[in-house]
Amino acid sequence: MQTPFENDFFDLFGIEKTYSLDRLQLRDRFRALQKKFHPDNFASASEHERRLSAQYAALINEAYSTLSDAMQRGRYMLTLQGISTDEELDTSMDPEFLIQQLELREDLDTATASTDSAMEMLASLATKVNNEFSKREESIAEILDNTAAQDSELEKARQLVRELQFLSRIRSEIEDAEEALF
């Protein structure tokens, strides 16, 4: 992004740097910023202003989509602390979590193959995944919103964010399966 903007996304929205952020406040600030910088406000402005406004608007959109998503927000906050969650550089995962993943996948296969109750099975599987997701969100918030968090705790948060990545992938596969049944 070639904007002269150097502060982080939280500063951009003028909100506190917390994982458990106020979603409504974030949305309000997002809209207010777009009201100022969206290209529609510059349709009759000079070419350069139009280009700049498009860059700012894209940055604001990027910041909003990052902060409003639980997994991306976690990754972003860790990156701000110099911790990378790059999956390709890291293959170590909690074995217990991996086993649970395999089970979820088996459940998904069973549900899809079911002839009479596929929809119900998929729905209950989705609830299970959502619960696992929420549990991790809470734990991440506890760590990241504690300014005195130790390195080992941050490492735990990093693990949890990676687990969110796996869970959101299976969640979208469940939705794909639901769609295929429709």
Binding site: P4, F5, N7, G14, A32, F37, S46, H48, E49, S53
Partner: peptide, 29 residues
Amino acid sequence: NELSEMFAARRMDASIRSVMAGHNINEFS
């Protein structure tokens, strides 16, 4: 257009900085 580029850049810059600096933050809430 070329001549007015820096003018446009300064205006935009000031605009986002004023938002960031909190001068206008009230108008957002």
